[in-house]
Simulated assay, not measured.
Amino acid sequence: MKVLPAIGIGDLVFGMKTKDVEQVLGKPNKAFEDEDGNKVYLYNAYKARLTFYADEDFKFGYVICTHPKLELSGIKLFNENAEKVKKELTAKGMPIWEEDDIDTMTRLFNEKNWLTLVAEYEEIICVELGATIDKSDNFVWKFKK
């Protein structure tokens, strides 16, 4: 499954509504509202949690994914050494990474692409990706229907 910074993941594009996502992936295995009133869809087969923002007319704006076949710019992510992946992505044009260490976990964050690589014991175990925000603090929705 391809991680597409600023666009989405796989065939999902930031800005899709729940009905658009359901046309691509089918009904979620679980759906609920989070503490902010956002809709959250869980898809077990994709190991993905999708968030649809309430204050943005329930547009798809964030994904947390642990699928073992995740890749970004042709680079395999899941269970790969975080430092190695960071260097490879930097060489491919993603040079700015903020790093945060908490116990056994490291979070590598690329603000420009609103991309977080979560590593435990130095191996990537999770990817978080969000819709980007422009200079006026508005989301940049890529889905046009």
Rank of each mutant, 00 (worst) to 15 (best):
E123V: 03
P68K: 04
L115V: 00
K17S: 09
L50R: 03
L12K: 11
D103M: 14
I133R: 06
E111Q: 09
P68E: 09
K87Y: 04
W141S: 03
F32V: 00
N29Y: 08
G15H: 07
I124D: 04
W114K: 11
I102P: 04
I133S: 04
Y41A: 06
L89N: 07
K76N: 13
F78Y: 14
E80C: 11
K144S: 15
S73L: 12
E88M: 07
K87G: 12
T66D: 10
L129S: 07
R107F: 15
T116D: 10
T66I: 00
E99A: 05
Y43W: 05
W97M: 02
D137T: 06
D137F: 11
K2V: 10
Q23L: 14
T106R: 13
K59Q: 10
M16C: 06
A54S: 08
K142V: 10
K59M: 00
A91T: 07
H67T: 01
Y121L: 12
E71V: 06
D103P: 03
V63A: 08
V24G: 02
K39E: 12
L4T: 07
K59H: 03
L115R: 03
T66W: 00
A6F: 05
A82K: 06
W97D: 05
L89M: 10
F32Q: 13
K145P: 09
F52R: 07
A48C: 02
K69Y: 10
F14M: 02
L115A: 01
T66E: 09
I64D: 12
E80V: 05
T90Q: 12
L129P: 04
M94D: 02
E71M: 04
M94W: 11
E56I: 03
E123R: 01
W97I: 05
G15Q: 01
V140P: 00
T18D: 00
K142P: 10
Y121P: 01
K145M: 12
P28W: 01
E80K: 11
K39A: 10
L25N: 08
L129Q: 00
K92D: 04
D11S: 15
D134T: 04
A48V: 03
T104W: 07
R49C: 11
F143V: 06
T90V: 07
